[in-house]
């Protein structure tokens, strides 16, 4: 976005000589420039102060705290070097890998949520392009889950998975599980949470995919059809390739979101799960932070999470830039 957006900007100081009157005047009168700066600063100050206070300073403080042992009030007690980081990443040679395993659990979780989400969204979006009169109603229904909070969805799915309602008993019988609920068996717990997560993100994934489908020019289909292409060929050689940027975008967004998932784990399970099967990294941070009050250690974990998400977000921005060039 940035290159285009900046094109109507005034010249930067270095380019001023090449600019006509207005810029030269500005250069001749520095006080006016400062006055303009002050006025702009005034307009930006509420947002600036709030974002400094609640985003930048806390972020820097997280990094600071991650190098210290803290007391239960959150004050730094003693410098700890990078020991928390080596502990998390098992670089200290202790062989305790529970945090690496927790990151791995998060990766598994994404590997379940992302493909499921894409497949369902694609199916729904293709259905939503059918030309029938009441299609708007169906589109609203397919979108509905974006209005449902993860907390509400978790409360509902907790009952779907509850042994008392017996709604998923057939699946437990089918799989011959030795557990009362899908959430209580190490082999199915993570999958159960992932399936529920797919449902909560269905509306969003659907709407993004539908927008991508609708952006494909219609005459491409018309001419391919005249050339004798059947429905499968249209989908395989036109829809899918032209939808690839949208799907890539969706894959990255879903991955980032699944790395940040917390609510459903806390409401549906509330602990590390059977045999730590659902101890995703964000939940492990919550445990260190909230249950154990180890603020320094939890901060180090949150910095590790930041780095993982930073890489993912960076890839996403690069991808978005490319997507703009396609069009």
């Amino acid at each position: 976005m940035s290159k285009q957006a900046w094109s109507n900007e005034p010249a930067q100081p270095g380019e001023m000589l090449a600019m006509p009157t207005a810029a030269r005047q500005a250069a001749a009168r520095p006080p006016r420039q400062w006055w303009e700066f002050g006025r702009a600063l005034l307009y930006m100050s509420p947002a600036l102060l709030l974002l400094l206070a609640f985003t930048y300073i806390p972020f820097l403080r997280s990094i600071w705290l991650s190098f210290f042992v803290t007391n239960p009030q959150g004050d730094t007690v003693r410098f700890n070097d990078v020991r928390y980081y080596t502990r998390i990443l098992n670089l200290d040679g202790s062989g305790r890998t529970e945090y690496l395993r927790s990151i791995l659990t998060t990766v598994y979780f994404s590997l379940l949520v992302v493909p499921l989400g894409i497949v369902f969204a694609l199916a729904l979006a293709l259905l939503a392009t059918l030309r029938v009169r009441a299609i708007a109603v169906f589109r609203t229904i397919f979108t509905s889950s974006i209005a449902i909070s993860v907390a509400s969805a978790s409360v509902i799915w907790a009952l779907i998975y509850s042994p008392n309602t017996r709604a998923t008993q057939w699946l437990i019988d089918l799989l011959h599980l030795n557990a009362n609920s899908l959430l209580q068996h190490p082999a199915t717990a993570l999958f159960a949470v992932a399936f529920m997560t797919t449902w909560t993100s269905l509306g969003f994934n659907f709407i993004v995919t539908l927008a991508g489908l609708q952006a494909i020019p219609h005459d491409i289909y018309e001419s391919a059809r005249i050339d004798g292409a059947n429905n499968w060929a249209l989908f395989r050689y036109i829809t899918l390739p032209l939808l690839t940027p949208t799907l890539l975008f969706l894959i990255l967004i879903s991955t980032i979101q699944s790395f940040q998932a917390f609510t459903q784990f806390n409401v549906l399970i509330g602990n590390e799960g059977p045999a730590n099967a659902t101890d995703v990294f964000v939940f492990a941070i919550f445990t260190a932070f909230w249950k154990d009050n180890r603020y320094g250690f939890a901060s180090a974990m949150s910095v590790v999470l930041f780095l993982i998400l930073f890489v993912l977000t960076f890839i996403q921005y690069r991808l978005l830039d490319r997507r703009v060039h396609y069009q």
Binding site: W6, Q33, E36, P58, F59, A298, S299, F306, T313
Partner: peptide, 24 residues
């Protein structure tokens, strides 16, 4: 005004910081 780009990226930069890293 001068240094506009800097301010723009200060605002945009907040999008790179996940809430998990500020919440404690």
């Amino acid at each position: 005004f001068p240094a506009k780009v800097v301010f723009f990226f200060v605002f945009l930069g907040t999008l790179m910081i996940p809430w998990e890293s500020t919440i404690i």
